Amino acid sequence: MSKNKIPEFLRHAKLLKKNAIRYAASESVIFFKESFVNEGWTDGALTKWKKSSTPLAGKRTLYKSGKLMQSIRKLEATDQRLVVIADSDHAEIHNEGGYITVTEQMKRYFWAQHLKFKKRNKKKAEFCKFMALKKVGSKVKIDKRQFIGESRTLMQNLDSWFRGTVNTNFDKQKQEYTFILQSDGNSAY
């Protein structure tokens, strides 16, 4: 007579939970960074960002140096919650949109940029002069260009992965713990 094999469901469940947390954290960071590649936010469908009107912008919207995209990282991943952040100084204003207040420091920066571009790039020089002449305390509108947040598409992707992983593990266990024929011809589990 042979031994009965009992599936180790608890061990498999713990391993699945651990892998799900790790996978969700990794995929979330990748998903949010893909917003920069797609130049838009994907909730149910991709919503393209409004192109920047400033001549100082890079070739791609929100991607001049790459610092904003590179600031996206996992802060916390537990079985209770997952926190992914973008810790660049200007992440919040770009993600949510809003107004920024013109400061003396901004005016000095744009005067320096104006002088830098004066002979090389008239369009950039004019824009910098326009910004440098703004009154301290005046407001500049920053359009919302969301790249991080809750997303139905991301959740569907994670759910799909989880279902697939559970099904794969279940199928493996079914194969491992099939009937074992005893020597007397009776089947046992």
Rank of each mutant, 00 (worst) to 15 (best):
V84K: 07
H94P: 00
L115G: 10
S65C: 06
L15P: 01
Y99R: 15
V29G: 06
K17R: 13
F31M: 11
G97P: 04
T101K: 15
L15G: 13
Y109E: 08
A91L: 01
Q80F: 11
E104Y: 12
P7E: 14
K119M: 14
T61L: 08
Y109P: 03
K64W: 02
S71P: 02
R73V: 01
T54V: 12
K14L: 12
S53K: 15
S26Y: 12
F9D: 03
T61W: 09
T103M: 12
I72P: 07
V84T: 09
V29C: 03
V83S: 06
A20K: 11
L16N: 05
V83H: 03
I93S: 00
F32P: 09
L115F: 15
F117S: 08
T78M: 06
P7Q: 12
K119V: 15
F9E: 02
N121P: 05
K33S: 07
S88M: 00
L75T: 01
E39D: 06
H114Y: 15
Y23I: 04
T101Q: 14
Y23E: 13
V102F: 07
D87F: 02
G44C: 06
R11T: 12
P7C: 09
M106T: 08
G97N: 05
E76L: 14
I93T: 02
A86L: 00
K118Y: 13
E76H: 07
S65D: 09
A20W: 14
A91R: 00
P55W: 02
V29Q: 06
Q113I: 04
K64Q: 10
S52E: 08
R120S: 15
D43H: 09
L46T: 13
A57C: 09
T47R: 12
F36Y: 07
K50I: 04
I93E: 03
W111V: 11
E76T: 12
F31G: 08
K18Q: 13
K33D: 07
G58Y: 03
K122V: 08
T101I: 13
K51M: 01
L46V: 14
I72S: 06
N121I: 02
G40T: 08
G44E: 15
I85S: 06
N121S: 07
N38V: 03
R22I: 09
R81P: 02
Y109V: 00
K122N: 10
T103Y: 11
A20R: 12
I21G: 05
I30D: 13
S71H: 03
E27F: 05
E8H: 03
K14S: 08
P7Y: 14
R120W: 10
E92S: 07
A13N: 07
G97Q: 05
R73G: 02
A112W: 04
R11F: 02
V102A: 08
A91C: 01
A20V: 11
A86M: 01
R60H: 09
H12I: 02
D79V: 11
G44P: 05
T42R: 15
W41I: 05
S71M: 04
T61K: 10
L15I: 10
A25H: 05
D89E: 13
S71L: 05
Q80P: 03
S35N: 05
P55H: 01
I100V: 15
I100M: 14
W41P: 07
R60L: 08
H114V: 01
S52P: 06
P55I: 00
N38K: 12
E96Q: 09
S88Q: 00
T78L: 11
K48W: 04
V83G: 05
H94S: 03
E34W: 09
G98D: 00
A13Y: 09
A13D: 03
S35M: 11
